[in-house]
């Protein structure tokens, strides 16, 4: 079963983008099973991406139970893990995305807290 969900870019031209248009980010979220924790992680990931990246991203959600081979290929150890595959360097955010400090540092975003 394909769990990949691609969000089409939502036009958010109302706000002026940064000086150079940032490249489209490619993200993958690995979760383990359709648990409450997984569900919440997926929701948080989407919301964050929408607010921070203003839709300029591709997010793929992978259930490692369904596709263990992808867990291997993606070198996943912990779940949930959000991997930013592009732009480089690869960043792995492990955890349910509740601690925004680590999240923002990891993705190089400016913390708004």
């Amino acid at each position: 079963m394909k769990a990949a969900k691609s969000k089409p870019a939502r036009p958010a031209r109302a706000q002026s983008p940064p000086v150079a248009a940032p490249p489209r980010q490619r993200l993958r979220l690995y979760v383990a099973g359709a648990t409450e924790r997984s569900r919440r992680a997926i929701l948080r990931a989407r919301r964050l991406c929408d607010t921070e990246l203003r839709g300029n991203y591709d997010l793929q959600v992978i259930d490692v139970y369904q596709q263990p081979i992808l867990a291997r290929n993606g070198q996943i150890v912990a779940t949930p893990t959000l991997v930013r595959e592009f732009p480089k360097p690869v960043v792995r955010l492990i955890g349910n995305l509740t601690k925004s400090a680590g999240l923002f540092v990891g993705l190089g975003w400016n913390s708004k807290d």
Binding site: Y30, A32, G33, R37, V64, Y65, P68, I69, A71, R72, I76, V77, A78, T79, P80, T81, L82, P89, V90, V91, R92, L93, I94, G95, N96, L97, T98, K99, S100, G102, L103, V105, G106
Partner: peptide, 21 residues
């Protein structure tokens, strides 16, 4: 250096990989 912690997690990924192997 690639890993940043963002909350609670477990090592289910490792279990899944080992189990699959």
């Amino acid at each position: 250096s690639e890993i940043h912690e963002t909350g609670e997690y477990d090592l289910e990924g490792l279990f899944v990989r080992l189990n699959y192997a």
